[in-house]
Design a protein around this nucleic acid. Structure first.
Lengths: 212, 212, 212, 212
DNA sequence: GATGAATGAGGCTTCATTCAT
DNA sequence: CATGAATGAAGCCTCATTCAT
C-alpha cells in the first residue's frame, strides 16, 4: 500500500497471464489454432517465447485458458438470465439473441467459435474440452428457453432438440461469416439486419397461432 | 486402336488426374487443407509425390481443381432446376434442399464446405476462388428461388438478401457438424429429422398467411 | 552395367543409409545419445537435416538401426563360434574374449556399450530394445560357454548366472574406460595387458584343480 | 545462544546447503547429470531456483559439492582401514569389498559412480575433478592392498596395476547395473550372490598356491 | 539472504517444393 | 512422363542462468 514500487511489480506479476491470454485470443482469432505461432503470441504480449511456458503447459492449455477466461463466463451469465427471467419467452428470446450478439457475436470472441468449428477434428483433446464446457452448456440453455416457451403456450410444440440446433445455426453462421469470407464481400452483411430477419423468421415459425 | 499398349497409356494419362483428385478430395475432407500432406495424397493415389506437380502447380491449385471437378457441377444442376421449375415454390424449396442433401450434404463433398469455412482466412487466393465459383452462385440461386416464391404470392415479402443467408445457415451448419464435433456426440443428429425441422420452421415462417 | 551414370546414382541411393549410419555411429560414440544432435549427424554425412527423416523415423530409430547394423551381427558370429567349437573350453574362452576385443572392444563400437550403460535409464524404449537384442543374447552366449566348460570337467562347478556377470564385467569396464576417463589418464591402460591379466585371473579362478 | 531467533537462522544458513546437496544427490542419481533440471533440485529442496545460485556457482559446482560431501569421506575411511589393518590380506580384501558395498554400492551413492562413467566425456571439468578426487585415490588404495598381499606372500605376484583394474571392474559394474538395465530384468541380480561369486573367483585366482 | 519471473539459444521434427535421373 | 531423394525454413518446447525486487 505504502510501497508503490512493490505494488507495481505485483500488479505486473498478476497481470501477466491476462496479457498473455489477451494476445493469444487475438492471434487465435486472427489465424486459427494451428496457424498461430507461439512466438507471435509472446511477441504481441511483449515477452519472450519461454515466458509463455511459465504460465501454460503447452499450446492446447493456452487455448483452453483463453476459452475458460473469455467464453465460459458469458455462458454463465446467459444461463442466469434464462433461469431468472420473468417476462414473455418471446422477449427472452430477443434478450438472449441480442445479448449473445453484444457479448460474443460482435466481439472477437466470435472467432473462437469459428475456430472450433474449423479445426476441431485435428485437435481431439481441445475439442472434447470445448464440447463439454461450451457447446453442451450452450445448447442446454437454448433448449431450456424453448421448453419454457412451449410450456407457457407461447410456442408451438416442436422437437426441442432439433429446434435448438436449427436456432443455433444462423447465429453460429453469422460468426463464421465474419471470419471466413468477409474479405471477399463488399456487400458486408449487416449483422443487425441479419439478426432481425432471423428473429422475425423464427418467431413467425414458432409462435403458436391463437386461433386456427 | 490397333495399338492397345499405347491406348492404355493414353487412357492412363487422362485418368491420372482423376485418381489424384479423388485422393486429394478424400484427404482434404478428412484432414482439412493445411493438415493434408501431399505425401499422403500421392500415396493414396499410388503415385510419387513429384507426379502431383506434373498436373498441379501447387497445393492450392490442386484444391481448386478438386472444387471445380466436384462441387461446381452440382451447383450447375441446381441452377438448372430452379430456372426450369414449374411447380409451386414450396415444392421447389423441398426439391432443392433434399437434392442438395443427397448430392452434397450427405456425401464427402460436405467436407469441402466445412473446410472452406474453416480455413479460408489463411489462404486468401483459394478463398477468393471459392467465393466466386461457389458461394456467389449458390446464394444467387437461393435468392432467385425466394424471389420466385414472393413474386408468385407464395411467400411473404421479405428481405431476400438476408433471408437467403438465414436459409443457408442451417444447411451449412449441418455439414459442419458432420465434420466438427461428431466424435464428441453420442446423440448423433439425425440429418433427416434436422432437415424436416428446418423445412417445417422455414415454411411456417415464410408462407404467406392467406387471410389474417 | 552399360549405364555408369545410372549406376552411380543407384549406388548413391543404396549407400545413403549406410553413410548416415556411419555418421550416426561416430557421433553417438563421441557424444552419447542425448548429446548427439541430428544436425551434426546430417552434417557429417553431408546431407541436410531433413534427409535423415527419409530413412529413420526419429532419433531412437536411428540409434536402433546403428545397433542392428553394427553390433548385432558380431554377436551372431560369436554365437556361431560357441556352437561349433571343437577345442578345449579354455581355448574357446580366449577365442571369444580376443574376438570380442578385435571386433567390438577395440573399435568404436565399444562406445555403443558405454552409451547404453550410461543413458539407458533416460530412454526406456531404446533400453528395452538393446536389452533384448544384445544383452540377453550376449549373456546367453557366455553362459553357454561356461556350461560347456563345466560339463566337460574343465571348469569348476560354479553359479553360471553369477559367473557370467562377473566375467562380463571386466570386458564391459574396459570399453567404458576407453570412453570415460581416458582423457584424464596419461598412464593409458594397455588393453592387451589388461585382458591378459583378466584371462589369467579368470582361468586361475575357474580351472578345476586336478588333484588337491 | 541468548538469541534463539538468530541462532535458528544461522543454523538454517549452514543447513541450507545440506538440504540442497541432498536434493541434488537424489536427482543426479535418478536422472543423471545432464538430465537433472535445477528446477527439480530446487523444488525438492523446497527453495526457489535462484537460491541454488547463492550457494553454488553453477550446475557443475553443485555436482562437485555433492561428490565432495558424500563420496570423498567414504574413500578416506577406506584408506585409513587399509593403512591400519593388522589381519590377513584376504580378510582385508573382504572387509574392503563389503565395506564398500555397505557404504557406497548398496546406497544411492552408487548412482554417482554410474553417472560419472556415463557422462564424463561431455563434462570435462567435472570429469577431471572426479578423476583426481575419487578415481586416482580409490585405485591407489586398492593397489596398496594388493601390494600388501603380495609382499606378505599371501597373493601370487601379479601386475598390480592391471589387477587393480580387473578387481574394480566387477564392483563398478554392480553399481552400473543397478542404475542401467534393472528395469528390464526380472531376474534381479542378487548383489550378495554376485559379490560372493566375485570374491570367490578373485581369491581362487589370486591366492598363492602353497605347494604345487 | 531469498525469490521467481524472465530470458533466448538450441534441439527435434514436419512438409511443400524442386530437380537430377 | 514419372520418380523419389533432397532440401531448408519453420514450429513447438526445454532449461541453465540472470536479475530486479
Amino acid at each position: 500500500m505504502n510501497c508503490p514500487l512493490k505494488k507495481r511489480w505485483e500488479r505486473r506479476k498478476d497481470a501477466r497471464p491476462q496479457e498473455l491470454l489477451a494476445a493469444a485470443l487475438d492471434l487465435f482469432v486472427e489465424k486459427g489454432f494451428a496457424a498461430t505461432r507461439l512466438d507471435d503470441v509472446a511477441a504481441r504480449a511483449g515477452v519472450s517465447k519461454g515466458t509463455l511456458y511459465l504460465y501454460f503447459t503447452n499450446k492446447e492449455e493456452l487455448f483452453k485458458a483463453v476459452v475458460r477466461e473469455n467464453v465460459v463466463p458469458v455462458l454463465g451469465e446467459a444461463e442466469g438470465i434464462v433461469e431468472a427471467y420473468e417476462g414473455s419467452t418471446v422477449d427472452l428470446f430477443r434478450e438472449i439473441v441480442l445479448g449473445w450478439w453484444e457479448r460474443i457475436g460482435a466481439t472477437k470472441l466470435s472467432g473462437i467459435t469459428k475456430l472450433m468449428m474449423a479445426e476441431s477434428s485435428n485437435f481431439p483433446e481441445v475439442t472434447q474440452f470445448y464440447h463439454d464446457e461450451v457447446i453442451r452448456r450452450g445448447e442446454a440453455m437454448i433448449a431450456r428457453m424453448l421448453e419454457r416457451g412451449v410450456q407457457r403456450g407461447e410456442f408451438r410444440p416442436v422437437d426441442i432438440h432439433q429446434a435448438t440446433r436449427v436456432i443455433c445455426s444462423p447465429m453460429i453462421m453469422l460468426m463464421m461469416w465474419k471470419h471466413s469470407f468477409s474479405t471477399c464481400r463488399q456487400d458486408q452483411v449487416s449483422p443487425e439486419d441479419y439478426l432481425n430477419s432471423f428473429v422475425d423468421m423464427f418467431l413467425h415459425g414458432m409462435i403458436a397461432q391463437p386461433s386456427r
